[in-house]
Design a protein around this nucleic acid. Structure first.
Lengths: 333, 333
DNA sequence: AGATTAAGGGTATACGTTTTCAATAATGTG
DNA sequence: CACATTATTGAAAACGTATACCCTTAATCT
């Protein structure tokens, strides 16, 4: 592969001149510029990004750490990031961390070895201290779907407590007095916060949520089915089910229908996240919209901004609040 | 950030020795090795991947070109690749090409600038010649979901013609004499090949497929709805619908149900790809399994293998054949 | 005892860029 | 025409790492 040196030789100029042409530098004559460009074209020259990153100490790439790509939620996240990196001619370096401490750590470290100065990180397994430490090493370090007070201005997150509250309030306003909850068995922040919001709303309405009306399972369709099966087995009475996410909601609906219980006529179901599947399943899911894609774009922009030297403002954070998307899985009683 | 030089100084050894320690090189005593390692740990040393790539001419990363991340199909593809790169300690460089010539080209070129020697490429917009040219420049160049005879040993692809045939044969074997087809309006290879297979099967069964029974639309749920609407509007009679993919099938089902037509009792529907949604929608979709994830892993392994110097065998190619997944959207008539 | 070898470690160069500084040529000014 | 600018170019150093080659020293062999 042709290097800058080859071009210089072929054009009869110095390395410096060629470099200036490549970077549209100012101090080069019009005729030489044209000549060099022509030769670059002919020889199929391609700048070496590694050499460039080495000397400039800037990598023109952004690191992304997510859990699992085949989860639609993360696919949307990645897409949100990609749309802004493409605009800015920045390359994406992708690492999956699968919500495991070891893996998340290695993912970030690999990115660090590549000297990316911008990073969008989705981490649930690492503790606050570790992440704060990383944020000191990487100017454009941004967390998504997580809030850490000490680095609030690097956090793009969803207000899950409010989300949970909105969800429950909506069900209650639709006349539901007996609600069941299907939560995730992984005790990371998100399910806890959503549950907390739900509890608050129920308390405010002077209703009760017995522990027996809460089922925990894996946050996917199978988990939703299983949780609903357990709920039905206990013989508990409820007219609405609030699920941790859309996949669980979908599973719950399937199980209800399999038991001859009509959704939403006999039992209403609510999801959370508004991923693709919410529109595809039947009945269409009433859910809470988590604007991941928008948030991911925001995070990427932020990361790029901070990376380019702009200092994060103090006392600022990027909080989003989910909104109810009314479809067909909830009905007034 | 500490460099090899700093470590050498702190440890009172030469650069070469430190480098040897880092790479588990042979010519260094046990005690020095330990001492250097300890100092590296203390100073938080991290090798600079760019410098390393520059001097070794190897990048320890694999480039991936796909269309759009938020399409579940590509999310699964990316996931398949990721699972093998993680095992091999290789980083993913991701570029989206959105099935546009310009964008796909830029995506590959950016990857080339990073000097990745392994690449898994999903390209539909670039012509054979261009891709063959690239394959000469990148030792580990592998195409996924595309077949080019000249570089057959670098192609991991699905036999779409056979897939289309299997699909139609299944419907016919279930007694369906009048089938409609919903295809993609984008005239890239895939829909054409699938359609070709369908046509063959119908001809073999001495049935006919009038052009009026084929509708073209965007390959998503909306497209499926629209296509079905058009089909219904013409008043055509059919008992089975073969869709280009699962999303279109799902849209078609929705529209049928909205018109009070029961699926599968009155009309059977078949999808293609077997993405997540096929299991989530109601009735569950009978579809053709496209083992993307497995194929993507294969492609990644191949790319890494070729990149490490192993020559591609002549006269070899990696063809996969889809299989029918029987669920609930097709019924015997 | 001298020669040979092996182990451990150091020196220096290369990888492909960018960028600072100095040098030259071209242009303008009085 | 002499001088001061300005525009264009070149030489060289630096970025952080790997490695081929050379130099010690001590151990082994004849």
């Amino acid at each position: 592969m042709a290097t800058i040196k080859d071009i210089a030789q072929a054009a009869g100029v110095s390395l410096a001149t060629v470099s200036r042409v490549i970077n549209d530098g100012p101090k080069v004559g019009n005729d030489t510029r044209k000549r060099v460009k022509k030769i670059m074209e002919e020889m199929g020259y391609r700048p070496n990004a590694n050499a460039r990153a080495l000397v400039t100490k800037r990598s023109a790439s952004l690191g992304v750490v997510i859990a699992e790509l085949h989860d639609p939620f993360f696919a949307m996240l990645a897409h949100g990031v990609e749309s802004v990196t493409r605009k800015n001619n920045v390359q994406i370096l992708l690492s999956a961390g699968s919500i495991e401490k070891e893996t998340e750590l290695r993912a970030i470290e690999t990115l660090l070895e590549h000297r990316v100065e911008a990073m969008v990180v989705h981490s649930k397994a690492l503790d606050d201290k570790t992440l704060i430490e990383f944020s000191k090493q990487v100017p454009g370090f941004v967390l998504i779907n997580r809030y850490i007070p000490e680095i609030a201005n690097r956090c793009v997150w969803l207000d899950n407590v409010t989300g949970g509250r909105l969800m429950a309030e909506y069900a209650i306003n639709q006349g539901h007095q007996h609600v069941a909850v299907i939560s995730s068995q992984y005790r990371i922040d998100d399910p806890n916060q959503r549950l907390e919001g739900v509890r608050t709303a129920i308390k405010n309405a002077n209703l009760v949520l017995p522990e027996s009306m809460i089922e925990y399972a894996t946050p996917d369709q199978e988990g939703g089915e299983l949780a609903m099966q357990n709920l039905l087995a206990t013989g508990a009475k409820f007219t609405a089910v609030l699920a941790y996410n859309d996949a669980m909601a979908s599973g719950a609906m399937t199980m209800l229908q399999d038991h001859g219980i009509a959704v939403p006529e006999q039992v209403s179901v609510m999801g959370y996240d508004d991923v693709l599947l919410a529109k595809y399943c039947r009945p269409k899911l009433t859910t809470l919209r988590y604007p991941v894609e928008m948030m991911a774009s925001k995070a990427a922009e932020l990361a790029l901004k901070y990376a380019s030297g702009k200092q994060p403002e103090e006392g600022l954070t990027f909080k989003y609040t989910p909104t109810i998307i009314k479809r067909d899985s909830v009905v007034r009683v």
